[in-house]
Write a protein that binds this DNA or RNA. Sequence first.
DNA 1: TTATAATTAACTTGATTAGTTATATTATAT
DNA 2: ATATAATATAACTAATCAAGTTAATTATAA
Lengths: 137, 137
Amino acid sequence: MITKKAEYAIIILTELASHPSDSLITSKEIARNREISVNLVVQLLSIMKEANWTSGTRGPSGGIKLITDPSKISLRKVIETIDGPIGITRCLFSNTPCQNKTQCSLRGVWAKAQNNMLSVLDEVSIKDLAEQAAGDF
Amino acid sequence: MITKKAEYAIIILTELASHPSDSLITSKEIARNREISVNLVVQLLSIMKEANWTSGTRGPSGGIKLITDPSKISLRKVIETIDGPIGITRCLFSNTPCQNKTQCSLRGVWAKAQNNMLSVLDEVSIKDLAEQAAGDF
DNA sequence: TTATAATTAACTTGATTAGTTATATTATAT
DNA sequence: ATATAATATAACTAATCAAGTTAATTATAA
């Protein structure tokens, strides 16, 4: 399951991407604009900083800005960064397929199903979402 | 996430499908052949009976048999019967999309990703798995 | 030097998953 | 008839994961 935290992270990045680059926006503003708890925004920004997607300036008149091209951040990357490896079944988390024949056949099906899903998440970037949302006005 | 119970159910159905129709096989045998706890086999068979996929004969020399054409049982159906509705995000479980523009754009992406995944699980049936496993010998 | 804002880590709570235990019911071989 | 082999149900437990909170620390502009 893709968690709400991953979804929030995507929304936060989209918010950042829809502001002029180099302009700063605070956690509180993001939280207010997108209706996410400030605590969560703060928690997620911390992970995004580690991923080198954002940088922050502390103190009054400080804030966050995006330092990675949003067209280079796919939804899949965000999800994997926040949630860890994606797997639609436990089977796909283990490296070695199991012995049982049915299970091995199944592994192939799971992999195909998952790859079909991931191809969509690979192709959509934060930039796409920001543009799409802007176009809705 | 597709649970192990759903995966076990698929394996159990495949086991049943790979025996001559109308022949009976006991829960214990299924459990032994597929290396699944008897308790779980019994628990899952109970759900499968409710779904009208299997019927059981009690008493000595009793057992379980498949009463639905395995080519008519898709992996998706099994998963939904055991795990309930499938959703790769919480968002897709709610009927009404949320207000926020980014989130609404996201919903479309989630839906597309999920449908890509489901199309695979719709197309593969228990019969396919049983045949594939038989061919491996 | 003080208020403001980012950063970081640890913690709580609730839901879900995986599997077990216990008990009831039924059919049949002897 | 009755013990037994089997299915059928329900309730329970332990472990893991998701979601969100709390609190302490660090940097900086005014």
